[in-house]
Design a protein around this nucleic acid. Structure first.
Length: 926
RNA sequence: GCCGAGGUGGCGAAAUUGGUAUACGCACUAGUCUUAGGAACUAGCGUCGAAAGACAUGCGAGUUCGAGUCUCGCCCUCGGCACCA
């Protein structure tokens, strides 16, 4: 065995041993409690980046921690291998997406193996393989049967020049990224999964996971779902003048009751302000507006068309959109006041929220206020702060006539007391809200209602590289689901890739020509594929039973492993993926396949790894470039144009300009995601263990991690010091007695402190790991190592040591190094395994030996003496040593007797002495 | 604009949850050993000060024997949402 630390050598050795012995293969068993450790599966881009390393290092730390705590651990990995990049590669480089994907997976698996992540590789799932996506289709059919999958028209981005649909990204700025022509919204039939069937559960079940999930993720999800309590109110529409207006029934999307032909339903959260409504404002797309277009004046119709066109453009969130609108000439009757109001079209009213129509109450809504101010509409105050005067403030540039009612300088949006509202005047807002909604219901023109921001999940993609939607269109039978026995609907080997966004499968007759499962007549397949988020919504269930050919998984097997005990991934998935997976789990529950509501008991969102220090070689010398020294110039899209930096090379400043040899280094570290740092390179230079250890140590896991390559060397040093210490004591460890030998009390005094430190560290380790505080865990191991090193130094100075001392010190050192090796495992498993084998004297590995973390012994961890700080008037003046059990009186006596303390208190009155047992003494004098 | 998180040495960060502020690491400085070092080891390292000591956790007040931690008011940074009726 080599006594010098060569990471590469031992890493390869243990990776081979683990693979050969199937060390991480999980199977169901009774004896131990189970633990399902899951990390978000990677997209196989071909390269791991440091963000992955951080994610998988954290997951592996948990997996090892739980194994050595006696859990039966399931720790799998798979590939989110459907998606656009494979198709882009096909277009750009003419490669087959399947080959490209498989090659990337092979490469990335190699990278993960070189990092030594402890996966059960037998359970890998591959989203793009028929064995997996067969069950995407299976689920789709189940949802279709339950009415959870349906098809409807929706708007997509459409380039009329290219005749292609575009993603939002491709339609950025309202212009086609390919040809530069304007993008319009086009109606297209799309398949949807009914996530809204579970809206309330998605919101309410958060209570179950509150303790284990980051608050900000829960917050973002509930914002996304956006429950809003209010009321529907129906306004009767009348024509003005002599034109005849046709007002259609508002369709099912926007109403819950049949409104008849002449009503418009609005949603409001502030029905208590309805007497302040000055108009009804409708979205340009509103059916009532669209149906009446031909009745409007040319000017009005043109304006509406303009607003509609503007709405169709993808939103630019950076610029605030100015309020715009036009009065249509229609009139609406306020059902409470009987007042007749003008009907406007406004650009700030969205068709896909609420009912696409709102009552405008400028006095009590900021947007309505802005709208009314711009168009000189009346503003009537109907809510007032309780016990306060009305705010009558003038706006100089407006004439009094413009504001026939009360003038406000800004909207008063708080709750208060209702005024100017007929019989409701004098009520509180809260009472009025409730009573007015009841009143509306009683007289059939409205009701209390809840609306949501959450929409159904559109899963149709006009793409090749995804799971085909298993639907068949038959001229005779209509829309027919594919039969279960015909699954999977397999992708053809290839398809014409144009990159224009049309469905490539629509150009493959061998694919779309089929027979109807019902009548066996000729029929055509759906040529759209599913959103890749479908694959990641249930993949973790597949890990539990990866070989099942009949079902996505056996419910009995899944019942053992799931729910996931700990999930780890980036918070960029805080909303989409995690909502979809939660939705899917609820569907599974209703299908009777699982018995719980929530798939992930605990969630950890790790921060991003961002560019930081890069290194470069300068004639054999390695330099590091600090992030704060870099001045990066970006273009308006945030891309790096150039980077200038001052680099300190051993004291001398050096200016780097674009075009310098360092440009590459600086540019790569300036990239937002740290993609430029190549994990393979880190493993090659420093070793997998040091790289992983450093990533876990450098910052709290939930923080952003600024990459600092120089820091890894500290991790290498730490590992080497443990290594060298273990080998230094190799002989002593081999000869160590199995129990602490009896030894004279005096001698014990120089042995015991190490045992104390050992057990204190064990205690801290447990606390930190359970709370996922990896950085402080590593810090405490470093402290422990420093301590071992100090004892080693002190003991080597003991001359003419009796044999008892040798036994005792061997025992204590073995206890310390053994504990250290095991506690190191979650962060540096290869090194830890090697050290363990040295200490224990066999090479089978921890798991084969059934190794467990040593137990914490409270007795041993207790200190003989503790240092008690003594303050005078809150300022630290001295310290006294006391035994842990010392009484308050004793502590007080010691403190008052202390020489340094006396300097501060002599000649003064001691007013009070505060004693915190085992903590501190504070003497208050005057 | 709204919501959320956060501001502690040159840097990443600790702080037993109201009790010794700056653990651990990086960087830096000096020394030892070396042909040499970018290796290893030893020591130092918040600011001011020769020292004693004083002052320090974004700023300002407050509560307390005692505040990085609690309360109030500001300032700044980073995330999320964005006309949600």
């Amino acid at each position: 065995m080599d006594e010098k630390y060569f990471p590469k050598k031992i890493e390869q050795k243990w990776q081979k041993k683990w693979a050969e012995s199937g060390a991480f293969n999980a199977k169901i068993e009774d004896e131990r409690p189970k633990f399902f450790q899951l990390e978000m599966l990677p997209y196989p881009s071909g390269n791991l980046h440091m963000g992955h390393v951080r994610n998988y290092s954290a997951g592996d730390a948990m997996a090892w921690y739980k194994r050595l705590k006696g859990f039966n651990v399931l720790h799998p990995i798979g590939w989110d291998s459907f998606g656009q990049p494979a198709e882009d590669a096909a277009v750009k480089r003419g490669v087959n997406p399947r080959d490209w994907t498989e090659d990337n997976i092979k490469a990335m698996r190699g990278q993960l193996e070189r990092l030594g992540v402890s996966y059960d590789w037998r359970r890998q799932m591959f989203a793009h393989r028929p064995e997996y996506y067969k069950f995407d289709q299976w689920f789709f059919l189940k949802m279709y049967e339950k009415g959870l999958a349906y098809k409807r028209m929706t708007q997509v981005n459409w380039c009329s020049h290219d005749q292609a649909t575009l993603s939002n990204e491709q339609a950025s700025g309202g212009i086609c990224w390919r040809c530069g022509n304007p993008v319009i919204k086009k109606d297209l039939e799309q398949w949807f999964l009914k996530t809204t069937a579970y809206t309330d559960q998605l919101l309410d079940d958060m209570a179950e996971i509150e303790a284990g999930w980051p608050a900000n993720v829960l917050k973002r999800q509930s914002d996304w779902i956006g429950r809003s309590e209010g009321a529907f109110v129906d306004f009767e529409i009348r024509a003005s003048g002599d034109s005849m207006f046709y007002c259609p029934i508002v369709d099912g999307l926007t109403s819950t009751t049949d409104l008849g032909a002449n009503r418009v339903r609005v949603f409001t959260t502030r029905i208590d302000t309805i007497y302040g409504a000055n108009s009804l404002v409708l979205a340009a797309e509103h059916p009532v507006i669209q149906a009446n277009l031909h009745n409007f004046s040319a000017e009005v119709a043109e304006k509406i068309a303009f607003i509609r066109a503007e709405n169709a453009k993808p939103a630019d969130h950076e610029a605030e959109i100015e309020k715009d609108g036009i009065a249509t000439g229609l009139r609406a009757v306020n059902p409470f006041s009987g007042e007749e109001l003008p009907v406007w079209v406004g650009n700030y009213v969205m068709m896909d929220y609420g009912t696409g129509a709102l009552m405008s109450v400028p006095a009590h809504d900021e947007r309505d206020f802005e709208f009314a101010t711009k168009f000189g509409l009346p503003i009537k105050q109907v809510i007032t702060r309780e016990n306060a005067l009305l705010m009558r403030l003038s706006i100089p540039e407006k004439k009094a006539d413009d504001f026939p009612v009360t003038e406000l300088v800004e909207a008063f949006t708080e709750y208060g007391t209702v005024i100017n509202s007929g019989e409701w005047s004098g009520d509180t807002s809260a009472d009025a809200k409730k009573e007015m909604a009841e009143y509306a219901k009683k007289y059939f023109f409205g009701e209390a209602a809840t609306t949501y921001r959450l929409r159904d999940w559109g899963i149709s993609r006009q793409r090749f590289w995804g799971s085909p939607i298993p639907i068949i269109y038959c001229d005779k039978c209509g829309v027919v689901p594919e039969a279960y026995e015909n699954l999977p609907v397999e992708l053809p080997a290839t398809a014409p890739f144009t990159g224009t966004g049309e469905s490539p499968l629509a150009k493959v007759p061998e694919f779309y020509n089929t027979n109807c499962p019902k009548c066996d007549g000729p029929a055509k397949r759906e040529t759209d594929t599913m959103d890749t988020f479908v694959d990641s919504s249930w993949y973790f269930f597949r890990y539990t039973d990866p070989g099942n050919q009949i079902l996505p998984f056996d419910p009995a097997i899944a019942a053992y492993w799931t729910p996931v005990d700990q999930y780890i991934g980036g918070d960029d998935h805080a909303v989409m993926h995690l909502i979809y997976a939660r939705f899917w789990t609820k569907v599974l529950r209703d299908l009777g396949m699982v018995k719980f509501n929530e798939p992930f008991k605990r969630l950890l969102t790790q921060g991003m790894v961002v560019g930081g220090t890069a290194s470069f070689d300068d004639g054999g010398k390695r330099h590091y470039v600090q992030p704060e020294q870099v001045n990066v110039v970006k273009d308006e899209k945030g891309r790096v144009v150039s980077a200038t930096s001052i680099v300190h090379i051993t004291g001398t400043a050096r200016i780097i300009k674009p075009g310098d040899e360092l440009e590459h280094s600086i540019e790569r570290m300036s990239k937002s995601k740290g993609n430029g740092v190549d994990p393979d390179e880190m493993v090659e230079i420093y070793g997998a263990d040091a790289s992983r250890l450093f990533v876990m140590f450098a910052a709290p896991i939930e923080n952003e991690l600024v990459w600092n390559e120089a820091g890894i060397e500290g991790a290498v040093r730490f590992l080497r010091r443990i290594w060298e210490m273990t080998f230094r004591w190799k002989e002593g460890l081999a000869n160590a007695p199995s129990t602490m030998p009896h030894f004279d009390p005096q001698g014990c005094q120089i042995i015991r402190p190490l045992r104390q430190k050992t057990h204190q560290t064990i205690r801290r380790f447990d606390e930190n790991m359970e709370n996922l505080k990896f950085n402080t865990t590593v810090a405490s191991l470093m402290e422990f190592m420093n301590s071992i090193s100090n004892f080693d130094g002190a003991w080597s100075k003991v001359l003419e040591a009796p044999i008892e001392f040798e036994h005792a010190s061997n025992f204590a050192m073995k206890e310390a190094l053994y504990a250290l090796a095991l506690m190191l495992t979650p962060f540096a498993p290869h090194t830890a395994e090697e050290l363990y084998s040295v200490i224990i004297g066999n090479e089978d590995g921890m798991l084969a030996n059934g190794a467990l973390f040593p137990a914490y012994d409270e007795e041993l961890a207790r200190a003989d003496e503790i240092e008690i700080p003594v303050q005078v008037n809150g300022k630290l003046r001295s310290r006294v040593m006391a035994s842990p059990g010392a009484s308050n009186d004793q502590l007080q006596q010691m403190a008052l007797a202390d020489e340094k303390v006396r300097e501060y208190i002599d000649g003064k009155d001691v007013v009070k002495v505060v004693v915190v047992p085992n903590r501190l003494v504070n003497i208050v004098v005057k």
